[in-house]
Structure formats: structure tokens, C-alpha cells
Design a protein around this nucleic acid. Sequence first.
DNA 1: GCCTAAAATTTTAAGCTTGAAATATCATAT
DNA 2: ATATGATATTTCAAGCTTAAAATTTTAGGC
Lengths: 165, 165
Amino acid sequence: MTAPAAIREKHDGAMGAHGNVRLWLRLLTCATVIEKRIKRRFADRFGVTLPRFDVMAALDRHPEGMTMGQLSQALLVSNGNVTGVVQTLARDRYVSIAPSPTDGRASIVRLTQQGRECFAGLADAHHDWIDAMLAGLSRDQRTALYDLLGALKHSLAADTGKEDA
Amino acid sequence: MTAPAAIREKHDGAMGAHGNVRLWLRLLTCATVIEKRIKRRFADRFGVTLPRFDVMAALDRHPEGMTMGQLSQALLVSNGNVTGVVQTLARDRYVSIAPSPTDGRASIVRLTQQGRECFAGLADAHHDWIDAMLAGLSRDQRTALYDLLGALKHSLAADTGKEDA
DNA sequence: GCCTAAAATTTTAAGCTTGAAATATCATAT
DNA sequence: ATATGATATTTCAAGCTTAAAATTTTAGGC
């Protein structure tokens, strides 16, 4: 077996001694590599984009349906964005859009039967891919990484960005 | 002082017991939050987009200039992408595009004086923002996180994606 | 010189993303 | 009833992203 090719770091060799920036770039690189790999595999093997998968995943957990605004909040993306993704999903018959019976402004989006079946396959593959990509880490390493990322999340929540700078 | 608001995790509450997927979603959330925050601040305070900053950062480390292909490789994005970003950067006089003296196919992109000055301010702010966002982690935590992400990088390099799936 | 394969780049089409402006509806106070 | 402000959504313009096709140039082989 040949040694696997090392993954190049974005801005490799840059930033000199700024350890924090290097940490951030390494984090970004890992996230980007995983995301692009999943995106590529979804496209190649299922003909599905990542945003569509995200919408379907959210809807799968809410069989009663979700409004556009709820989807926007759950996925951390803008309202206008959801409109476009849901429209193509509806065009391809993966979701249905129905007017809300209680609120004339809102629409209720639901997975169709076809959408549910499609998503089941996507979720299985997704799960397997993640497992394989993390296989090089021990159980302890994964736990430690999960906890440290939790600490980072806290640190991010504490940084309001209001420093005058 | 009020407690900072917790950061919602993408697909919060989803995925049940699949620890690996949860680890991935937490990693993705951290990267996304940091990236969006930087993007927003660059836009608000400097009127610059992240891709343009990335190109300027690469060029700043290569005063001799880079070809489109080198930029594409360094930034892990497609060729066609670089073309567009560099063109708007050139339109705004931050970079110059000159034909290569040795290869008629290639162009050489360089930061202009205006580009260098602009980038210096961007890099300073960028550095400060990262420091502030990581301030909640101890030195040991940052070292541990950096090392674990290094292990993850190795794990990613080992996963070829050739499993039949 | 001429042909061909490889390399660097640009162009194109489709889709994602955002923020801001525009629409439509709801809820409430008069 | 009607005016007001808030809410849900859509539309729009600008920019990023990719893959694939087209273009241009290089480098060799004949």
C-alpha cells in the first residue's frame, strides 16, 4: 500500500507564527475537504446537491411539515435561499408545498413519498461516508475532538464582535 | 453581563445516536460560524468579499506573481472561479494581470501597490478577529485541538472514497 | 513546415447565497 | 372599518462555485 497523499492546507505555509490563524485554517481545511467530498459523492452517485439534502433532512425530522421560515432558521440560511431550493425540490416532486390553513402568509412544505424514499438512501450513504472519514481517529480522539469543538462553540458564542477594532 | 446566547447546531437535535455524524455537524457548525462572521465583518467594515481576501492573501505571499492555475491550486477552487474573482479584483485595481514572458498561455497576476496596502489592513483585522474568537480556549486546549485536527486530516487523506458503497 | 497531444485559460450554464426591496397577510388599536 | 406595524414570503441583483466545452498556445514527432 502506498502512503495516502497528504491534504494540502489552504494558504499552506502562510501566516508565519500566528498559531491561532493556523488553527483556524486547519479547521477550515478539514471542514472544506469533508464537505466537498460529500457534495461530490452526492452529485456523482445520487444527482443531489448538498442544500437539497439539508432541506430534506430537516423535513424528514418534521413529518408534519415546516414553513419556509422554519426551514430558514433550522438551516441557518436566508429566506430567499430556501425559496429557491424548495422550488426546485418541488419541481422534481420531492416535496409538496401547501398553503397553511391557519396563516394565509405561510406555506407548509412536506416530503413526498418519493422524497422520503430518496432521503433514506441519502442518509444511509451520508452516515457511512462520515464513519469512513473518521475511521483514522480512536474513540478517545473522537470524544476529545467533540468536546474541544464544544468549547470552541462556547468561545464563539462569547465573542460578540463588538470590539471597536 | 448576560450569558452569551448558545450557538445553534445545524440540524440541531437530529441524527439520533450517530456520534460520528454529530461530531461532523459540530465541526461544520464551528467552521461555518467563524467563516460567516469573518465574511460579514469584511463586507461591513472593508467592502471586501472572502474569496477576494483569499486571492490577495495568496498573492501577498508571492510577490513575484502567480498564474491563474497556481492560484486555483493554492486556494482549492476551480480554474473558472479564479478567472472571475481575479477579473473583478483587476477591475478595482487591486491586482494586475500581465502575460507571461515565457509561456504565451499563462497570465501572471500580482498585487498592485493599492492591493498591498488594502491587504495589510485586512490581514491585521483578520488576525485580531481570530484571536478574539479563540479567546475562550486555553493554550493547552488550542494545542490539543490543533493536533486532533491534524489527526483528522490524516484520517481524511487515508479515506479514498473507493469503497463500493 | 505540419500534426498532434498536452497544458493554461476562458466561456457557459446551472445552482447556491445573500441582502434589500416588494407583496401579501395578520393582529391590534383606534 | 381602518390604519399601523409586524410577520411570511418572494423577487431581484450581485457574486461565488462547479463542471464541461471551447480556445489558445506549447512542445514534440514526422
